[in-house]
Design a protein around this nucleic acid. Structure first.
Length: 551
DNA sequence: CATGGCATCCTAAAGGGCTT
DNA sequence: AAGCCCTTTAGGATGCCATG
């Protein structure tokens, strides 16, 4: 009994020791580094126990001890031992309860019960809609609330700590080193031996259930599941959480698998009958799983670098719903408090806005003015800058018309992003300071801002250029090229140019009409109705000219 | 495939009211 | 004073389709 874990390396036959809390990717890399060149390298780590389905650790998951009889070992590139071992195991793992693949319930049946009341759910509240796919999902207030009616009174301080820690682990919280020297080492050892959580994913393709440790990324799980499939079996496209009567929750490739609680099951989605076939194309994991950074020593030594941002994979479709991609980048990685924290005094409001937008652009986000007040209603001047995905999708008074072939409801990018800067006007002159109210996002940031309705807009200078070039008869594609060459950060699309062209045409037409209207009004005795009729004719004439030009 | 029309409706930005 | 919510309006992005 000790505060470390032992991993048997199948290639070398040696046992390596790691402290509890070590990331799987780190352990794997170190094990592989110590291998002889002839030994096949390890692919990943798994927990095994006779008669049990192994539990695979994703590269970013934290190594833990699953308790009595469970051992950790590497899985090698060849996987021959593994195959053999697998054959001895039952082909299909029966879920502990008929309808639940929730890690919680299975866990209670298979392993020693934790300290708390068995019937008490120890997971977060089930997520039932898109809106709750925000930070609320990371709110475990209810989970940690003890029920007075159950008379959940702890007999000692240590028992309370044990309960809290176990609950924490059950929802995927990394074990915290409590700053307390009074706790005897034995206590900690006991805690570490307690069984931990894992997740079960039902593989539709094979009909089998696969187990993964909490903290495993969806892409890792998916690839492993697909690797275990036989030839001719359709492979899984992605993983989703399902519950009867609820909208499924899709896991993006970089999201971390979590248990949504009572009634929610995890399962794969296959090609067959899938409307979004090929939409998610999980990238192939390398044969050897490596940490994101070569020098990762622990999960906590990450530094903030503007140039080293955790940007989303380009292949990942941009959706309006963050869904489970909230987990794809940890809150720490999405926290830009440092980037926006400054003592600079801006000489005017616009200077502050420009600075914030520039910083935003450099980190892959679009900063918009959420609200600005110029001392109206006796208030002091202030400005709030937010992420373009702030707030929720607007509800409109006029209900959407029935879906026709010509119209389709558009998706909103809003996801209630909490990012917020506050600009405060100083009493002296028009000087402004900025304060970070909330520096983090609840959604992944994009490598490219193209497609953003804000970032894609033309600046006044760009508008002038576009108009000038359009008048010279330059093609839209060429104009776009000019804009991109002029400013590599330009995020416009060819559609932006077409829209500008349409606007220009409309404006010129209106101007011509107006000129003619005024001309007529001053030189003729025509009444309003007659003038409107002539104006209408002129409009048609212009349309005809326009058509001739375009053809 | 490039271009463009049309209808729809999303968005930014600002003002203002109510409450704490 | 600050937080929250609602409203309004102009501008323009977007989905779908047609045309050459």
């Amino acid at each position: 009994m000790s505060d470390f874990l032992e991993i048997t390396c199948k290639s070398s036959g040696k046992v390596r020791r790691f402290s509890v809390g070590t990331e799987a990717s780190f352990a794997l890399q170190l094990i592989n580094q110590k291998l002889d060149s002839v030994d096949p390298s390890a692919l990943y780590i798994e927990a095994i126990k006779q008669g049990e389905e192994p539990i695979s650790f994703g590269p970013n998951s934290v190594l833990i001890d699953y308790g009595d009889g469970w051992k950790l070992q590497t899985v090698t590139r060849q996987g021959s031992h593994r195959q053999k071992a697998m054959e001895e195991f039952p082909t299909a793992i029966k879920p502990a309860s008929g309808d639940v693949h929730s890690a919680t319930d299975v866990h209670l049946d298979l392993l020693e019960p934790p300290l708390q009341d068995e019937s008490r759910p120890i997971t977060s509240e089930p997520v039932s809609d898109v809106e709750s796919q925000s930070l609320e999902k990371l709110d475990f207030t209810d989970t940690f609330k003890t029920d007075v009616t159950r008379k959940q009174v702890f007999n000692s301080r240590d028992e309370l700590i044990r309960w809290a820690r176990d609950l924490g682990k059950s929802i995927g919280m990394v074990r915290e080193q409590v700053a307390n020297n009074e706790s005897p080492p034995q206590q900690q050892q006991t805690i570490l031996q307690l069984p931990h959580q894992f997740l079960e994913i039902y593989c539709k393709c094979s009909g089998k259930v696969r187990r993964f440790s909490v903290g495993t990324e969806a892409s890792f799980a998916l690839q492993l599941i697909n690797k275990k499939l036989g030839h001719g079996v359709p492979s899984a496209l992605y993983i989703e959480a399902i519950k009867e009567g609820e909208e499924p929750i899709t896991f993006g490739p970089n999201s971390v698998l979590i248990d949504y609680g009572d009634g929610w099951k995890l399962e794969t989605v296959t090609n067959e009958g899938s409307e979004i076939q090929n939409e998610y194309d999980y990238k192939e994991l390398p044969d050897i799983i490596e940490p994101a950074r070569d020098d990762v020593q622990s999960a906590t030594d990450l530094e903030f670098h503007l140039t080293d941002l955790p940007l989303q994979d380009e292949n990942m479709p941009v959706t309006s719903e963050p869904i489970s991609d909230i987990e794809s980048q940890s809150l720490r990685k999405l926290d830009f408090t440092d980037a926006f924290t400054t003592d600079v005094v801006f000489n005017c409001r616009d200077e502050l806005v420009t600075w914030a937008r520039d910083v935003g652009r450099s980190v892959g986000m679009v900063v918009i003015i959420k609200k600005s007040e110029f001392g109206a209603s006796g208030r002091s001047s202030r400005i709030f800058l937010a992420c373009e995905r702030f707030g929720k999708r607007r509800e409109y008074k006029v209900p959407f018309k029935k879906k026709t072939s010509a119209t389709r409801r558009r998706v909103s990018k809003r996801c209630d992003c909490p990012f917020l800067l506050r600009g405060i006007k100083m009493p002296k002159d028009d000087q402004w300071r900025v304060k970070v109210e909330c520096g983090y996002h609840n959604h992944p940031l994009e490598r490219h801002l193209q497609g953003s309705s804000v970032a894609g807009k033309l600046t006044p200078e760009e508008k002038d250029i576009v108009i000038q070039l359009l008048r010279q008869g330059v093609k839209a594609k060429e104009i776009l090229k000019v804009l991109k060459e002029r400013d590599e950060r330009n995020e416009s699309t060819v559609r932006t140019i077409y829209n500008a062209q349409a606007k220009l045409r409309h404006e010129e037409m209106s101007a011509t009409s107006q000129m003619g209207y005024e001309e007529m009004a001053t030189t003729s005795q025509l009444g309003y109705e007659e003038m409107d009729a002539v104006s209408h004719l002129r409009h048609e004439e212009m349309s005809a000219v326009s058509q001739c030009n375009s053809s």
